[in-house]
């Protein structure tokens, strides 16, 4: 083995030794003494929508959008996308922004985020489910539904809904918006009848708000779950199961045109 080779390796070793030592010093220095420098704010037009092909769907809302309770994990959105893929023979791109337990207040916040706005902007179809958590509050709504309380909740909800739909329209004038209404999961319980009345009223007002916007379609689901509700509910007796989601998906699918 030549002496020069050994010397070369040694020198390379020394060079890297010094380089890494410098890196270490820099890391510590930067970590503790580096000046904070906030990243530049970008203007919205920087994020122009890329030219896309096929059908783009953006879904926003609560656990129904998420598909909670569906063993296959698809939810009505997933089933709908599968059906559309078959029917249209196009590529379908889905962005599912549904968040479990989301109320209309939270969705109001979410649609104001710039990236969520961009997702809505590039969509051909926007799917919305909201309100279930406002009204039922995870089953608590079953206990106290004295009418004053409900009226206050509904008023707030309708205001939020109006804002959300406005925001969607602001971002995207072209897309068809499908707003999926509420069903009554408690219909077979003791106070099911009274609850149904409230849900019907709630749905009616929601449909009225939707009608105030162009190309916003209110999709009723109340009737789907009216008979044999327990066949279509998940074990939590609140969210739909796979069959229940299929019902909703089929109803929306029959309304979609492209």
């Amino acid at each position: 083995m030549s002496k020069n080779y050994v010397r070369l390796v040694t020198i390379i070793g020394v060079v890297f030794f010094l380089l890494w030592l410098g890196g270490l010093g820099w890391a510590v220095g930067n970590y503790y003494a580096g000046k904070p420098e906030s990243p530049p704010q970008t203007s919205p037009q920087d994020k122009a929508v890329d030219n896309k092909k096929g059908l783009t769907i953006t879904a926003i809302g609560d656990s129904l959008t998420r598909g909670t309770g569906d063993e296959t994990g698809k939810g009505y959105v997933g089933v709908l996308v599968d059906e559309l893929k078959e029917k249209t023979k196009q590529t379908v791109q889905l962005t599912n922004l549904g968040i479990n337990g989301q109320t209309s207040d939270q969705l109001r916040q979410q649609v104001q985020q710039s990236e969520v706005g961009r997702q809505i902007q590039k969509a051909d179809i926007v799917l919305v489910t909201i309100g279930g958590n406002d009204l039922f509050r995870g089953g608590q709504g079953l206990m106290d539904f004295d009418s004053d309380n409900i009226t206050a909740i509904e008023k707030k909800y309708l205001d939020n809904l109006n804002f959300i739909l406005q925001q969607i329209r602001k971002n995207n004038q072209e897309a068809t918006v499908f707003f999926v209404g509420l069903y009554n999961p408690f219909i077979e319980m003791d106070q099911g009848k009274e609850m149904s009345k409230i849900v019907r009223h709630w749905n009616y007002d929601s449909a009225e708000v939707s009608a105030g916007f162009p190309k916003v379609v209110f999709v009723p689901t109340f009737d789907l779950f009216e008979l044999n509700v327990n066949d279509y509910l998940y074990t939590d007796k609140f969210h739909p199961n796979t069959k229940g989601y299929r019902l909703i998906a089929e109803r929306v699918a029959s309304l979609v045109t492209w």
Binding site: L19, W20, G22, L24, G25, A27
Partner: peptide
Amino acid sequence: LLMDFGLVWF
């Protein structure tokens, strides 16, 4: 990356 390398090296 250079900082990361320094830390890995240490």
